[in-house]
Amino acid sequence: MSATTLTEARLSYGGVLKSELLKLRSRAMLWVTGIALGLWALLAVTSGTGDIAKDPLFGTESRLFAGVMLAWIMTTVYAAVATTSEWSTGQYRATFAVVPRTQLWLAAKASAAAIYAAIVAVLGVVIAAAATLPSSLGAGGRIVLTDWDLWRAFLGVVAVFALSGVMATAIGAIVRATGIAVIIIVTITFILPFATLIFGAEWAVHISAYLPSGTADVVINGPMFGPALETLPLVPASIVLVAWAAAPYIAAWQLMSKRDA
């Protein structure tokens, strides 16, 4: 690069975002993404074609999203680790020496995590479609590309993954320790929902509806009601899901301006 080009160098959100996307590209990311997508496809295939006989449209579409849960947790944990690794490896010194506007860095890091997670979601649906549609259609299933439920589910999955990427980045930036971040994320995305199921009490079911998995379920599958089951309506669930990302992000944003790097 000539000196002329160097003099035009400027710190920008776009530049930091590109930097953070470059950092995400690692052997670990390939492993995590590969395993997440592999499990998604495996769960989609093994979910079977039983529901297709009852409802050819729902049965076909629901197979596409059967593997969401594990891929979602893995992607979210990876986003948190990608953030905490800044501190665990000492990389933060090099990062903040060139991006001293730490809140700009947080915005770019969260965006990079959201983009990565959204791409995993899109790939997951596409791979699940490729893996299941031949057998689903062969079993009498059908798919309608103009179906609102299909698009809500698809956009919902992408939104859930992206928002969880933001949440994970923010939690990572707050705690700065990989172990603690992973424990927090696994607890709120996986352990708490199961714990509330085990309790089965009314209050536990009520809490479950507000957890990330409960709200994500509504955004992807639509509201459901039944015994020992309570979900929020779509709009409140969407708002709560956004709050799960926004609250830690705002806390991290505040801390970035007050703490030492």
Binding site: L6, S12, L22, K23, S26, T89, G90, Q91, Y92, A94
Partner: peptide, 25 residues
């Protein structure tokens, strides 16, 4: 500030490219 300011799994080139990208270099 410290020679250990790099993620160990990253290559030297990848590390520098990530830093350079922040300023469009």
């Amino acid at each position: 500030l410290d020679a250990k300011s790099v993620a160990p799994g990253r290559t030297a080139r990848a590390h520098l490219r990530a830093l350079a990208a922040t300023h469009g270099i």
